[in-house]
Write a protein that binds this DNA or RNA. Structure first.
Lengths: 185, 185
DNA sequence: CCAATATCAGGATTACTGATATGT
DNA sequence: CACATATCAGTAATCCTGATATTG
C-alpha cells in the first residue's frame, strides 16, 4: 500500500530507548511510545479496513456513516447529528453524505421537524452494502485477531479511560469503569 | 477545534451494545469497539499534539521528522529512509521535508554516498525548535496523563502485539514480549 | 538495459475557515 | 435580530498512481 516493508525491529521501541537516554527513566518515554503506537496502530487498521471495503467502493468513513444510519430510528438522522456522532467536521459530514448519496446508499430529504435541516436516510441498497461490508470486516476480525478476548477488554478499558480523560465524553456512571465485559449487562 | 462537544455517554460503548444485539456475544462487537476506540484515540491525540505544536508552526508529522533526523547520525538521512522510518509514502516524505526546508529547519543536500539520493539534514534552528516542541509535548504528558505507569506499559504491550500481528515489524527476539518496562534493560 | 532514488503532476479524501441562504 | 442548520468556496495536508530524470 505504501513505502513500508516490515522492519526487522520495532521502530517505536527503538525510539523509546533513545528518549530514555535523553530524558531519563521518566514517564515521558513511555507516554511517547504509547502515543506513537496509537498513531501507528490506527494507520495499520485503517489501511486494512479501507482495503477490505474497497470492493464495495466504500471508505471506512463512509462505512461508519452507513452503520450509524442503520442503527438510527427509521434509518435517518439530521446532518448535525451525523457530524456529531461520527465526530467529524460538519463540512466533512456533508461531503461524506453527498458521496454516499451519489452512490445510491443514502437519500437526503428535508427534515420535517426543522425546516433548516436535512435528514440523511439510508436506502435499501445502502443497507445491503452495509451488511456485506460488515460481514467482510467481521470475517477479518477487524485486524485484531491476534489479541485474546481478555486483551480486547483491557485494551478497550484503557482506551476508554484515555478518551474520557481527553474530554471525549462525560463519565455517566461508575459502570463506565467496568470494562468491555460489562457491555453484556 | 471541530464540531464536537463532549457527549453525555460513550458513543463507542453504545455502538458495541447495538452490535451485541445484532451479532450476539461474539468477539466481533469487542473487536469493533477496540478498533473504533483506536481510531478515536488517535484523532484526539493528534488534535492535541497539533494544537501544542501550532505555536512552533509544526504539525505532528513534521515534528516527527525533526525527531527522526535529530536521532540520526550527523542529523541527516536519505529521503528513502525518512519515508521508511516515518512510515509514510515517499511523496509524503518529499512534501514534509520540503516544508521543513522552507521553514529553515532542514537542509537538503546531495547524498555523497549515492548520486541519485538526497540527504535531509536538520539545521541548528531545527534542533532548537525540536527541543522546544518536545518540551511542550512532554509537559502535556502526551495527552496520556490520566493513565498510570503500569497502564502505559500494558497499553504499549497490547499495541505492540497488535502491530506485530499486522506485520508492522518482525519479532526480533522473545524480548519483544516483555513489555515497555524492558526498555530500560 | 534494468533497478533504485527522488521529484513532480494530478486526483481523492479529510479538516478547517469564512461566507451565505434559510429557518427557528 | 440573534442563533442554528446546512452548504459551498477555497486552502491545506495527506495518500496514492503514474511519469520522469538521474544514477548505480
Amino acid at each position: 500500500m505504501t513505502a513500508r516493508g516490515a522492519l526487522p525491529f520495532d521502530p517505536i521501541r527503538r525510539a523509546a530507548h533513545l528518549w530514555e537516554h535523553r530524558w531519563g527513566d521518566d514517564a515521558a518515554p513511555a507516554a511517547m511510545a504509547v502515543a506513537t503506537s496509537i498513531m501507528r496502530a490506527q494507520q495499520l487498521l485503517l489501511a486494512q479496513f479501507d482495503a477490505a471495503l474497497a470492493r464495495y467502493d466504500l471508505t471506512f468513513a463512509r462505512y461508519e456513516a452507513l452503520v450509524l444510519l442503520t442503527f438510527s430510528r427509521d434509518g435517518g438522522l439530521p446532518m448535525s447529528k451525523v457530524g456529531e456522532r461520527l465526530m467529524v467536521h460538519p463540512t466533512s459530514a456533508t461531503h461524506i453524505v453527498q458521496r454516499l448519496e451519489g452512490q445510491g446508499f443514502v437519500e437526503r430529504t428535508p427534515n420535517p421537524a426543522d425546516g433548516r435541516g436535512t435528514l440523511a436516510r439510508i436506502t435499501d441498497r445502502g443497507r445491503q452494502v452495509m451488511e456485506q461490508a460488515t460481514a467482510s470486516l467481521v470475517a477479518s476480525g477487524f485486524g485484531l485477531d491476534v489479541l485474546e478476548p481478555e486483551e480486547l477488554s483491557e485494551m478497550f478499558r484503557l482506551l476508554e479511560k484515555l478518551r474520557r480523560g481527553a474530554g471525549d465524553f462525560e463519565p455517566e456512571t461508575a459502570a463506565a469503569e467496568q470494562g468491555l465485559k460489562a457491555l453484556s449487562d
